[in-house]
Each structure stands twice: as C-alpha cells, then as structure tokens.
Amino acid sequence: MNVVAALIAVIGMVILVWLGVGVLKLYTLFGVVIPYAAFLTFLIGLVYRMVNWAKSPVPFKITTTCGQQKSLPWIRHSRLESPATNFEVFLRMALEVLAFRSLFRNLRADLRGRKLYYGSSKWLWLGAILFHWSFFIILVRHLRLFSYPVPGPIDLLDKVDSFFHIGLPHLYLTDVAILAGLTFLLLRRLVDAKVNYISHASDYFPLFLIFGLVISGMLMRYFFRVDITSVKELTMGLVTLHPKVPTGIGLIFYVHVFFISVLVAYFPFSKLVHMVGVFFSPTRNLPNDNRRVRHINPWWENVPPKFLTYCEWQEKFKEQLESAGQPIDEDCYKEKKES
C-alpha cells in the first residue's frame, strides 16, 4: 500500500510532464517557472527550518559519549567518541557527516534458541555511503551546466568520474554507484521485515523520486540524446536570471527537471532535512566537558530550584537527630532571628 502509493505519485509526475510539455507545450512553466519556484521554496523552507530549530534552546549538554571521557591525565580519552574540546567536536561531526561514523558501528542481532549473537553489519553503511556521495558528486558535476567557462576542478571531476572510458558517452562511475546504492536502500526497505514494518509511504516516495531523477538523467545521456547546447542555453539562462526556453529539447529533459524541482521543494518539509538537521543534533555536536564547563539553560537561569532546605528538614526530624546524637545546626535559628 505504502509502496504503491509512493510509486503512483512518481509515475503521476511523469504523466503530468507529458501532459504539460508534450501535449500542452507549456515549456516556460516546466522549464522556468517551476524550477524557480522549487528553488525558492527550497531556500526559504530550509532557512525557515533551521531558524525554527535554532529558536529552541539546548537546555542541557546531553552528549552521547561513545568513548572514554577526559578525566585523569594518564588515561587516554577518546577524542572522536568523547570529544573534550570544540575542535574534537568538529572532528567528531566531520566523521559523522562525511563518513557516517555511527552507521559504521552497525551490528546485527540474531536469536538462536536462547542465545544472542551479534555480527558486524556494514551493508547499510555501504549503501548509504554509495548513495549520498554519488549524489553529491553528481550534483557538483552538474555545475558545468551552470557555469561558463566551466571551472577546472569541475572539468577534472568529470574526467575522473568517467575515467574508465566505458561506452560512448563515457559511463560515469557515480551513475552506477548511485543506482547500486538506491537499489540496495529500496530492497532493504522492501525485504527486511523490521525496516519494512516501520516504513511509511513518505519513506518510499523520495526513493522513487530520486530513482526517477537518476534514470531520466541517465536515459538522456546514454540513450535518448538531448541537445546539450539547448540544455545549456536554458540552464545558463536560469542561472543568469535571463531565462529563455530554447525549442527542441526532448520531453525526457523536462521530466528530469520536474523530478529535481519536486525533490528540492519537498526537501525542507520532509525527513530529507536530516541533511542539515544532523548539524544541530545535541547528542553529537557538544563536547563531553560537562563537569569542567558549565552549560547554561536559558529558561532556568534566573529561576532558583525549589526544595526542602536543610533547616526545614532539621525542624521535621529534630527529635530523631537529637536521639541519634547527630549535630543540630544552630545556624538555622540564627538566620531566622536575623531575618
């Protein structure tokens, strides 16, 4: 049900583009208006999201410590797993964001009879790394459509990505990698009973959407060649804010553009915000220096705690204290007289 709904949504988009561009010839709407609107939604939505998170304070320093704390000088603390300084936090975050450190820890538990076994399980990590890094490189590679002349590094990236010179045009490694990553992530959601059980349609939807995006892109490059000069004319027009719509670009290009538009517009309002959210995560982005540096909670800063004071307690248990020979604090009475 969830899978079908998500798939229908994505197929519906193809039909929509076919109707809009193929039948109704709304080139400007699909080539200019929708991309601009989507990009604006992305920017505004993302800023709104980040401001919204930032508006809520971090009342406590709740670092998840995954390694030895910094305590006695002769005990080596874990700089990456229990960072003691902001620089070490930076390293921990870098490893988390760039290398998916926590996913790399993943284990699998198996119950046989009444015995539990744990095995290393790095497939999820591998699938996630393949997918995310390929996506990132592909995005950067696309900058050559938005720049003139194309900067050297982007040209170089292009050359490296198509290094093996397979087929013509040369096959990009990242195209293969992202397909592999996506396929794994999708299959995992379908096949693994636990992950399947927790998946919503909104978990399948972005997967299908990105699948569509990648496949339409690859079809354009390797099979139904589109006129790259016209495409660049359009993209350069978009980026220089002088949009014009050249004729004769294939329908498939508009499908591709529509997919990316929907993806970026959907981004800030969905789980995809994890990309920026991870930077805000208080269990990861704070140092484990709680006893060394006081953390301030803004909503408690000028609110003193309410509790049973010693003197109130002493009054209550005076008899017991006296009979047990425990000292009575005379200061309690002094203070009373003074005040």
């Binding site: 999201r49 919204n52 998170w53 930032a54 508006k55 809520s56 304070p57 971090v58 009342p59 709740i62 926590s102 996913l103 993943n106 284990l107 699998r108 538990a109 999820l124 996630a128 995992r188 693994d192 636990k194 992950v195 927790i198 998946s199 919503h200 978990d203 789980k271 915000v273 994890h274 959210g277 991870v278 805000f280 995560s281 208080p282 269990t283 909503w299």
Partner: peptide
C-alpha cells in the same frame, strides 16, 4: 516541550527510519 528542547523538536523532524536502531 518543542519550544524548550531543541533535541525534541529536531528528533521529531529528522528521523529517516533507516532502522539502524531497530535491533539495538
């Protein structure tokens, strides 16, 4: 709670249901 705890607001928003936690 969402206004007072960034953790809460954020954790409600960013889970992708990857399932890494499932059998932990």
């Amino acid at each position: 709670r969402a206004e007072r705890f960034r953790s809460f607001k954020l954790f409600m928003d960013i889970c992708v249901r990857c399932g890494a936690c499932a059998d932990k």
